[in-house]
Design a protein around this nucleic acid. Structure first.
Length: 593
RNA sequence: GGUUCGGUAGCUCAGCUGGAUAGAGCACAAACCUUCUAAGUUUGGGGUCAUUGGUUCGAAUCCAAUCCGGAUCACCA
């Protein structure tokens, strides 16, 4: 049980005993005491002053006395200032806490809660390489999955690959027209980039053709439809759907190129999935649900035989679920896939990590599933994240203003290498060890950069300014970890003796212990809010605290053996929490850097 | 226009279930390496928390209106 919860519980009991009034624990407001006052945690009294008809001071006095008397191991003293009851937690309490957790690899890990959850993320299109936006998606999805795991959930990571559709045909057509049989092998290119280039070529050619048509006097909208390359693409999509062998074979071949490229990137950034779905295999799902929905009168049919759902009562619009030609739309597929996933995994919750541009889509998806009475419906949760934008605005692949994922990762590794070489602290590393270190640091900087901000908010990335390695960054935390490990190596600190001294904790020692104690609560908050940035901020503060502590107090040359011991314990637990916490963000921490 | 998300220091962001004098990092100015890793630490300047009104012991936080910006409201996926 966390300290804050203990304080709340103790307060509830005290109020019950003193005044015979029972309050729920969540009505007690407990804050960390502001540094300018004496104390560790503060109970805000105003909330019950009215109900109890007492002055804040009198209430605080009685409550403070009762709390200290009833919980001598928890509280050592208290003071009251203007309606705030500042409680001082006993030094021994913090020391016992550190003693107990000092080397506990499971610190912060919850027991299994019997619930299962699916996390769907990444969702790439197979017509172009991954970009910075995908990186945010991948890091978020992966991290949330790990955070849920330590909170006791059984997690299945899934990925839906958008491997069919008009956009795929665009690259295929362009390849037929311009490639002269070139392949990734013959051009020595990564497959996803190779295919992506033909997607760009399509758009270039398309624009030219439109311009040519407009020059002959055709209006722009008409020209967009008439352009031969577009007509060919649409024909190809039809051929694909009709199972044309030649088209299917080209489609497979080009997709294989892309998968090979994605595979490399996923390995490099550490993304993995337990189950991958392909849209080419799921896009027909959901059709039978349309019939079922019509029967249940959830859907209705218009005169032209298209099928709709009326969501005006829910403050939304009418939404199409089946075209008049009987084919299904995106929404229908998603309903089908949701049912499919549920049948396969029976997950209690299904989290979709998808950009906030699809907020409306997922709102509708959940509503429709609920109206259809699908068991998975209430468990649908859209983890909506903001776009990554450039200072000049949104990234657009057609205009070449995307930040390519591979390029960015490579650039990060280069900076990591350059800085490491400048500092020259690991000259004895082998080539392999160095490569691993650059990877750890470069990716750590990138992942932390993308995960440290609230997922809901859009964020700005300026390619002109390289991602920092100082301050609120991944490398700063990695560095702190390496620093601690260096001390532990030198003092060969394990196993620890049991700390029996009833010593006094210095302010910085106590601050560290206090902050370490918050780790389990932070992890569970990150899970319930679906927000890894809570964890990132926590870890940064821990690293900062440790560094301050480090410069003020020596561990190796501590004033006494007792001091040395408690500091060793604090250092070891700090390293453990930093390492474990960073791992939940998908970031490794080095032993040396 | 409807819905929805956002607006906090020069920049990037915390804080938002109402609590004490609004915080970090970067940038800027300065100090600290014969002592456990200076990718570090310390100090300093820097704010009309978009605006106006309301709710109350107390508002960056809640409510309303307004202004500004994004997303979305496709027989695209």
């Amino acid at each position: 049980m966390s300290v804050v919860l203990k304080i709340k519980t103790a307060t509830v009991q005290a109020i019950e005993q003193l005044y015979g009034m029972s309050l729920p624990a969540d009505q007690i407001l407990v804050n960390a005491t502001k540094p300018e006052f004496e104390g560790d945690y503060t109970v805000v009294l105003f909330a019950f002053v009215k109900q109890l008809k007492k002055s804040p001071d009198a209430l605080g006095q009685e409550l403070g006395d009762a709390l200290v008397a009833a919980n001598p191991t928890l509280f050592s003293s208290y003071n009251i200032i203007k309606g705030f009851l500042n409680l001082l937690v006993a030094n021994q309490f913090w020391m016992d806490f550190v003693e107990q957790e000092k080397n506990n690899a499971l610190f912060g890990t919850q027991q299994t809660n019997g619930k299962s959850v699916m996390v769907e993320y990444s969702s790439p299109n197979t017509n172009k390489p991954l970009h910075l936006g995908h990186l945010r998606n991948n890091f978020l999805g992966w991290s949330i999955a790990e955070i849920l795991k330590v909170n006791g959930y059984q997690v299945t990571k899934t990925c839906i690959v958008n491997d069919r559709g008009i956009h795929i045909c665009k690259s295929m057509i362009a390849w037929q027209l311009f490639a002269n049989g070139a392949t990734p092998e013959s051009t020595n290119m990564k497959g996803d980039h190779f295919v992506g280039d033909y997607y760009v070529k399509f758009n270039d050619e398309y624009k030219l053709q439109i311009a040519a048509l407009v020059a002959t006097g055709i209006d722009a909208a008409q020209a967009e439809k008439e352009a031969p390359i577009m007509k060919a693409t649409q024909q190809m999509l039809l051929d694909w759907e009709n199972g044309n062998a030649e088209v299917l074979s080209l489609w497979k071949r080009m997709n294989e190129w892309v998968y090979a490229g994605f595979d490399t990137t996923y390995k490099k950034i550490g993304s993995d999935f337990d189950k991958t779905y392909f849209e080419s295999q799921t896009y027909l799902l959901g059709k039978d649900l349309v019939a079922e929905g019509l029967e249940k009168k959830v859907f209705f049919q218009k005169d032209d035989t298209s099928v709709w759902i009326d969501l005006t009562a829910d403050g939304l619009d009418e939404k199409l679920v089946q075209r008049k030609d009987g084919t299904s739309v995106y929404m229908t597929q998603d309903i089908g896939l949701a049912v499919n996933k549920y049948n396969e995994f029976k997950a209690d919750q299904s989290i979709y990590v998808v950009g906030d541009e699809q907020n409306y889509h997922f709102k509708v998806l959940k509503l429709i599933c609920q109206k259809l009475g699908i068991p998975a419906a209430d468990g649908i949760y859209h983890l909506s994240y903001g776009m990554v934008e450039l200072p000049t605005g949104k990234m657009k692949s057609r205009e070449g203003t995307v930040v390519d994922a591979d390029d960015l990762v490579d650039a990060m590794l280069n900076i990591a290498q350059q800085k490491t070489e400048e500092l020259g602290k690991v000259k004895d590393f082998t080539t392999e060890e160095l490569a691993e270190l650059y990877n750890t640091i470069g990716l750590g900087a990138l992942k932390f950069f993308l995960l440290r901000v609230d997922p809901k908010k859009k964020m700005i990335f300026n390619p002109e300014e390289s991602i920092d390695f100082h301050g609120f960054t991944g490398p700063f935390i990695q560095y702190t970890h390496a620093r601690i490990k260096s001390i532990l190596r030198k003092l060969s600190a394990e196993p620890f003796a049991t700390n029996t001294a009833a010593g006094i904790l210095l302010p910085l020692e106590k601050s560290l212990a206090k902050h370490l104690e918050l780790f389990p609560d932070t992890i569970s908050e990150a899970a319930t809010e679906h927000d890894p940035s809570k964890l990132a901020i926590y870890l940064f503060e821990l690293a900062k605290l440790f560094n301050t502590f480090y410069t003020q107090h020596s561990i190796a040359n501590a004033e006494s053996e007792e001091k040395k011991l408690i500091r060793l314990q604090l250092a070891n637990l700090s390293a453990l929490v930093l390492s474990k916490g960073m791992r939940l963000l998908g970031i490794n921490v080095p032993e040396r850097m």
